[in-house]
Amino acid sequence: MDGNYILYKFILASAILLISLLVAMYSTLFERKLAGFFQDRLGPNRAGIFGIFQPLADGLKLFFKEEFMPGSADKFLYILGPSLTMMIALLTSAVIPWGNSIIINGVEYSLQVADINVGVLYVFAILSIGVYGIMIGGWASNNKYALIGAVRAASQMISYELAMSMAIISIVMMSGTLSLSEIVNQQHGFHWNIWYQPLGFLLFLVCAFAECNRSPFDLPECETELIGGYHTEYSSMKLGFYLFAEYINMFISSAMIATLYFGGYNFPFMDDLGLSHNAITMIGTIVFFIKISFFGFVFMWVRWTLPRFRYDQLMRLGWKTLLPLALVNIVITGFVIMLKNHS
């Protein structure tokens, strides 16, 4: 039993890791195809049918590029930067419930690696340490542009983390739990949190863009001002790690949005289909991935539609608009909960 349990957790963890990497790999192709569509051109279509082998070609290209390290760089930290970014990007997937449970021979196997009772706080913690990789990399390159990019990244992430946490707190108040699996279970069927927390969802979405360093908030790597921002001095696969981690972050953020606001693996009329528990779980997981893909599309859609913010606009939006709105949202949520308990 014990050995079985360890084996099952091991298989689940490696499967989720592989799926995250695969999704991130193919979202690069998807993004380039979409960019092509938005700019009225074809996008990559040479490697395989519809350019299906393009991510492999890109990866190989990055591996075979020349490694370059600035002479004045701090060698250990220079290598640690991209590695940390990649590692932290992959950490969050452990607490996301990817599906309900599967029952095999009377034993229930949950499709979540770690159902810890402080799941939401764990996500906060990963968010808050996510900036380390960028800061260490930017500082260790010993380059002005990289340093400015790193400093910008740090202040941007700290500012938007606050509003993001405040937005999630109203969800926590509503569901009365910090466990992500419990939050998803309470959204059974069509009782998704988006109907009760539309403002919270909007705040979370905007902050997710800023936390992933995605356009319109990609100030840390703003090409026109900073060349490449924190990864100016990086080349070869180390650069690849930074770029790749951004796509993993996007995937995980989309999964978090779907989990917190769009019911995770729940879908309407799931009890009326009359299917077995395992079949419902399978369909639920597929539905969850459809939701994730939709939000991944929104990320790319916005990137190729909106221009980049100026830095002071970014800070003003974060501190003077999003944070007060999040606080108002908490007060309203608290008020409604109080009224409900009294009636």
Binding site: V118, L121, A125, S128, I129, L147, I158
Partner: peptide
């Protein structure tokens, strides 16, 4: 003490040490 552990990481590693690094950089 899971709550204490996670809050410890959020407050110390996530906020205070980031500001320390910030200061050292600037």
């Amino acid at each position: 003490a899971q709550f204490l552990a996670v809050v410890h990481i959020i407050v110390y590693a996530g906020a205070i040490m980031v500001l320390f690094i910030y200061t050292v950089m600037l």
